[in-house]
């Protein structure tokens, strides 16, 4: 109990003092997971729209794969991305293992199915009759996609929240492909494991508070946008 009270107190002083090392870790996590979420949106939204609207053989199989991917274990992604990026691996010549770029790649792989799956569900929730009407009015494919995305944009903010929330709190992949290198690839979660391992529980608690605050702030901002005007 002492540790908890003391830890939280110490954590708050560390944060309010603006400890440069902790701020740098916070900034890196935000950059890496933000970029990964962006990449996931670029890949996942088109994929989700296509899966929701198009009809082709093997579609059900693909949808099942996406649904499975929504629960992709980060350590599995970490393991395979590591093997790909190893010096002796197929992408070894890139020499990006143990860099922030490697973490972005792994986190994008984790977040893409989440974005795809939620987009798919959001677009499928647009009423069938509405789509029929559009087609009846002679809308082109591009026009249909644009209108549908507009209709589904609010539920799709959930995709951003789920994707970002998933990758910023993920640890397995960041640890494996990033290596938790000080000042380089040390993110909030990997730093937390390290500091706990070192017995520096105050710092670990400070990082937990920061992580929760960050995820909350991002979700709050997005929720405000989402709830501003209910359709």
């Amino acid at each position: 109990m002492d540790l908890l009270v003391e830890g939280v107190w110490h954590a708050l002083t560390l944060i309010s003092r603006g400890d440069p090392e902790i701020l740098a870790i916070l900034w890196l996590s935000l950059q890496v997971s933000g970029t990964a979420t962006l990449v996931a949106l670029l890949l996942g939204i088109p994929a989700g729209v296509v899966l929701a609207l198009a009809r082709f053989p093997g579609r059900t199989l693909l949808v099942s794969a996406v649904n499975t991917g929504m629960g992709l274990p980060p350590v599995v992604v970490g393991l395979f991305v590591t093997i790909l990026l190893w010096r002796s691996g197929p992408l070894g010549e890139w020499e990006i293992l143990y860099t922030p770029a490697a973490i972005v790649a792994a986190q994008a792989v984790i977040a893409s199915p989440i974005v795809t799956g939620i987009t798919l569900a959001a677009v499928q929730n647009v009423p069938e009759k509405f789509l029929l009407q559009l087609r009846g009015l002679g809308a082109s494919r591009i026009q249909m996609v644009r209108v549908v995305l507009r209709e589904a944009r609010l539920p799709m903010l959930a995709a951003v929240m789920a994707g970002f929330g998933g990758v910023i709190s993920e640890i397995g992949a960041s640890m494996m492909v990033g290596g938790n290198i000080k000042g380089h690839t040390r993110t909030l979660t990997t730093a937390m494991v390290l500091e706990t391992g070192k017995g520096n529980f105050e710092i670990a608690i400070a990082l937990s508070i920061l992580l929760l605050t960050l995820v909350f702030a991002v979700n709050w901002g997005l929720t405000v946008i989402q709830q501003r005007r209910t359709p």
């Binding site: 970029t35 990449v39 890949l43 992408l91 860099t99 922030p100 770029a101 972005v104 994008a108």
Partner: peptide, 21 residues
Amino acid sequence: VRRLVHALLAVALLPAGVAAQ
């Protein structure tokens, strides 16, 4: 497959600024 993976990852990694080490 390798070339495809290259192309995909190249797109995925652009924003992070890949620097040859």
